[in-house]
Write a protein that binds this DNA or RNA. Sequence first.
DNA 1: GGCTAGTCTTGACTCATTCAAGAAAATGCG
DNA 2: CGCATTTTCTTGAATGAGTCAAGACTAGCC
Lengths: 153, 153
Amino acid sequence: MRETSGVAETYDFEAMLREAALRVTRPRVAVLTAVHRMPHSDTESIIRAVRESLPTVSHQAVYDSLHALTAVGLLRSIQPSGFVARYESRVGDNHHHAVCRSCGRIADIDCAVGAAPCLVASGDHGFLIDEAEVVHWGRCADCSAGNTPSATP
Amino acid sequence: MRETSGVAETYDFEAMLREAALRVTRPRVAVLTAVHRMPHSDTESIIRAVRESLPTVSHQAVYDSLHALTAVGLLRSIQPSGFVARYESRVGDNHHHAVCRSCGRIADIDCAVGAAPCLVASGDHGFLIDEAEVVHWGRCADCSAGNTPSATP
DNA sequence: GGCTAGTCTTGACTCATTCAAGAAAATGCG
DNA sequence: CGCATTTTCTTGAATGAGTCAAGACTAGCC
């Protein structure tokens, strides 16, 4: 029923949950919404965002939701070394990430190499590889320009 | 002076430290030795290994050494999502890693793609990329065979 | 409307890693 | 060689993202 505001971007998060065989709960819808609105955010930011509409959600509910949504593939988690977990809603396309060493900002990278890039490594040590994760390390525009923003993705 | 045992593999860790402009201390030599002997080990294993020769080192000394050695490029740290930090001494060649999802085992992967693989992404969002890190996720031979070893890298 | 399994709340807890202050040791120099 | 300076190590406490557990709640189904 929830009337969608005038904005064009209409995701039916309830349907997405149902299709994934997950119960539709307000925390989950709110988490999905938050991550869609602000990709690459960490758990704390997501908790804050969720609490704008649901002031009483527990952090545990958000953690649970994030795990459930990640498990069914509606979200994807990113954990660059030295930073806390981040989440994004862009799933299914094998895209990669650029991470800023100094402020932690993350940008999406559509990998130039067409197919799965370095997956040509499978058999090597008896490992059964099913995913290649690529992280591009560097500095974002702001940080390489000298000004070091205070870690606001 | 320390007489090298009969074994061929003779790394002069003291010289490596001096060349890196680091003071030569017993904890640092022991950490370097341990990581060379058992690559991809986590901090706790390294602490245990170091204490075999230096029973009284503090964990903080090992943490400090690992950071110092990593900072000057004598070691490299790996932190796959969901696992604690690991260290290896193979540095300088841009090789990658296969990580077992279930036991955490890590294997080195010499990337099939000759040059820097997906570095073709530089300019994209104003990021100045200087390193591409590739993690191949999957299952090691043991884990894909059914037996799940108890996380012993 | 009532059942039941799956979720959420609450609050305690883990544990890798970091912080801080003083003691100890490494390098350089007289 | 012995001392001064500076870095590193020891000790012990603290941090904080994330997890665990027990009971209350509720979404989905009859």
